[in-house]
Amino acid sequence: MTIDALSEICGPTRTPVAWVRSGHVGYIGPDLGVDPHSPSVAMLSVGLDAPLVLHTAQGPISTGSSFAPARTTQRIVATQGWILVLFVDPTGAPATAIADEMTAAAGPFGLAHRRERELAELCCAPIVDPDHIYARAIAGAAPVTDPRIEQVAATIRSDPARSYRADHIAANLGLSTTHFLRLFTQQSGTTFRGYQRWNRMIHTVRGAVTGHDLTRSALDAGFATPSHFSETFRDMIGLSATKMLRAGIRFDLGTSPAS
């Protein structure tokens, strides 16, 4: 599927769009009324027509853009118009590169991306290029991640339904289980288990968007029960998968596996 051309001005006449790429998952559209949520990956949000309000445990913050590290609870509200939400795979350290582009901070949150105006213009262009948006969000070169952790992450992405045991992987790497789990979290910014849940969730959404039954897609992705998927999706995204799938969003799945 492809993204429809968008108008030059961000406004209600456009079709909300979402994409899945290797390394990033994005959404451009109206505020969907999400609840507080805590994704297993980092998240960049940009107000396309007006500032956002970032709701945190310490109170609301008005900002043009915000960056939340993985596993950080937040809720973004658009004060007017549309928003960009970009979920960034933590392996390969692109999340760190985005964090370095934020010009202010409030606790764990980064505020005011250096190129937030450019990002907004890219999102409102006649044709949206998800990979260009991602590249401009990162801008500089990302720090190097331990190749062992990158390989483990790539294995999880290639087969998210499989049950991966930390002790087995650690043994294959010649590490203790504790050391491996600490290294994975240190290098990727998220937990070994959380990274598996994220990839299973994306795999489920891909299946549902391509016309498969949502329940079947969740089970095929490795979730023990449909309710486990539903809880995971709501915890990470802040709304139900059913609501998202019925929101009139046009999906672009690209050609490569999801991150």
Rank of each mutant, 00 (worst) to 15 (best):
P160V: 03
R114M: 11
P147I: 00
R115M: 13
D129T: 10
S158Q: 10
D129E: 14
M102G: 00
E101Y: 01
I156D: 10
L111R: 07
R157N: 08
G107R: 06
H132Y: 10
C123M: 05
A99P: 05
A120D: 10
I133A: 00
H113V: 10
E150Y: 05
S158K: 09
D159T: 08
R148F: 01
Q151M: 10
A125Q: 14
A120W: 14
F109I: 10
P108T: 02
G110Y: 09
R117S: 04
D100P: 00
A105S: 15
T96R: 10
A137R: 08
R157G: 01
A105T: 14
A135Q: 09
A106P: 07
T155H: 10
R148S: 01
R157V: 02
R148P: 04
A120V: 11
P143G: 02
I127A: 09
A135S: 05
V152I: 14
T96L: 11
Y134Q: 07
G110K: 07
R136C: 09
R136E: 12
I156N: 06
A154M: 02
A112C: 04
A161G: 11
R162W: 11
P147G: 00
T96E: 08
I98R: 01
E118L: 13
T96W: 07
D146F: 04
G110C: 05
I138N: 01
E101V: 01
T103N: 08
